[in-house]
């Protein structure tokens, strides 16, 4: 049955409207969770507020299990789901630069847009920074291209690398997440926080 647009069960002209509707849900949930506050987000890295850990992992696990069960029930064809390709070198170096941007700027791109929507001026400046950073990458692309394209591994899945089923991988992620949630709760007791 699904995914509906790639299989033309819903016309492609509806795709952008669907994107808009899904974005509303995405923005609403992020803001309700408190992701519109850089101090709440940064709390993750000092232990006083681990909401990022809890929301991010619960979200990833819910969608992961949803895909596995939808596939099991025959509701979705996983072969038609986009899996982002792995380029190990650029993923690691890009991730390091993003991690630095996260702790320096206090936002990631999605949360900054959500925060800007409720009037956070620091988030608007952060978005201006993203714009510049992407522009610098685009202009520097001729120099970066070789590294950017190196080490292509295609749309590789973790379950295939370790030769386990998606379900077993999901179970491992769930157990890991529960342990981290417990650690997060302990950290929040250890380091007091204000409400932002």
């Amino acid at each position: 049955m699904g995914p509906l647009v790639p299989q033309e069960i819903i016309g492609a002209d509806w795709n952008l409207f669907i994107a808009f509707a899904i974005g509303i849900g995405f923005g609403f949930v992020l803001e309700q969770a408190g992701f519109s506050s850089s101090r709440k987000l940064a709390g993750m890295f000092y232990g006083y507020d681990t909401v990022v850990l809890k929301v991010f992992f619960t979200g990833a696990i819910t969608a992961m299990l949803g895909l596995l069960f939808f596939s099991l029930f025959g509701w979705i064809d996983l072969n038609l789901i986009y899996v982002n390709p792995t380029f190990l070198g650029s993923a690691i170096v890009g991730g390091v630069i993003m991690g630095a941007g996260f702790i320096i700027g206090g936002f990631c791109p999605g949360t900054s847009v959500c925060a800007a929507a409720i009037g956070k001026i620091d988030a608007m400046i952060f978005i201006g920074g993203i714009f510049l950073g992407i522009f610098f990458f685009a202009e520097g692309y001729p120099l970066l291209k070789d590294f950017y394209m190196s080490g292509s591994m295609g749309p590789l899945k973790v379950s295939d690398v370790f030769g386990i089923s998606g379900g077993v991988l999901a179970l491992i992620v769930i157990i890991t997440a529960i342990v981290m949630f417990k650690l997060g709760e302990l950290a929040e007791k250890r380091w007091p926080r204000e409400e932002y």
Binding site: F56, A60, A63, M64, G66, L67, I81, Y82, V83, N84, P85, T86, F87, S90, A91, V93, G94, G95, V96, I97, M98, G99, A100, G101, F102, I103, I104, G105, G106, F107, C108, P109, G110, T111, S112, I125, F126, I127, G128, G129, I130, F131, L132, G133, I134, F135, F136, F137, L144, Y148, M153, P155, L156, K157, V158, S159, V161, G166, L169, V173
Partner: peptide, 29 residues
């Protein structure tokens, strides 16, 4: 931070939403 995140997101083919969250849900390396 925004400049770094913007640059890194292009080199890393996606940010926390597009690469990390979505990628984890689809089990991508």
């Amino acid at each position: 931070g925004g400049i770094l995140f913007g640059f890194g997101s292009q080199l890393g083919r996606g940010c926390t939403s597009g690469s990390a969250l979505t990628g984890m849900a689809s089990l991508s390396v």
